[in-house]
Amino acid sequence: MLVVQELSKTFGGLTALSGIDFQVEQGSITGIIGPNGAGKTTMFNLISGTFLPTSGSIRFKGRDITRIKSDKVCRIGMSRTYQNARPFEALSVLQNVLIGISYGRKDRPNIKRAESEAMDILRFLDLERHAPVLADQLSPLNKKRLELARALGTQPELLLLDEIAAGLIPSETLEMMEVIKQIRSRGTTILMIEHIMKAVMDLSDRVIVLNYGVKIAEGKPQEVSSNPKVIEAYLGEEVEEKGEETP
């Protein structure tokens, strides 16, 4: 469904990503993990068309989307959430979802149909009673759900989730994972970034590990978690974090 080849991005003189190859199969859940600064969000920005890659290509549903901007990519069938939830704050929850439905798809449903679809999505994500509430009044968990709802409104075939579990307490994370499973079972392919390995391992069919902008491992979750390079990358980070705490 998604084929990424030799993808590289440099900002000024800094290399954020270099020579990344991977594929996402239709109907699968693929996880991208890696320590902070590994280039995960940059990868999302390239795939979704927010940034242009320095070199390499991205194909989606057999179509070359390397140089296509994010508004079109969305209409082709790919949608995303953001690392720090960024809903349209002064708009209601319902209106947030309506924007995805009204502009993010090829068909342009009329307002009535759009509203009833939006309510279905909100019901699915347990946000129905918050529909008229302004987005900035929501709890962190509900903001994350709203991000999902807005993305689902565009009826994506591929959904990119950028650290959807970040900032949630463990019980909320479990709940979110359950929701993601359900979205997949409805036929949506999922590509997700997580900083925490554990969250991805249970869910993903395949896992890709990035470190310093390079792919260091790829495979089934069990294979990856026993890969010495991966352990080293994460151990290195833990040591650094501990080092920061001491003074």
């Binding site: 979704s48 927010t50 901007k69 994010s70 508004d71 079109k72 969305c74 209409r75 949608s79 995303r80 953001y82 960024r86 349209f88 924007i99 995805g100 502009y103 993010g104 798809r105 807005r150 565009t154």
Partner: peptide, 9 residues
């Protein structure tokens, strides 16, 4: 920027 990501022209 996000409006643009969601297809708003």
């Amino acid at each position: 920027e996000i409006a643009f990501d969601f297809g708003v022209p």
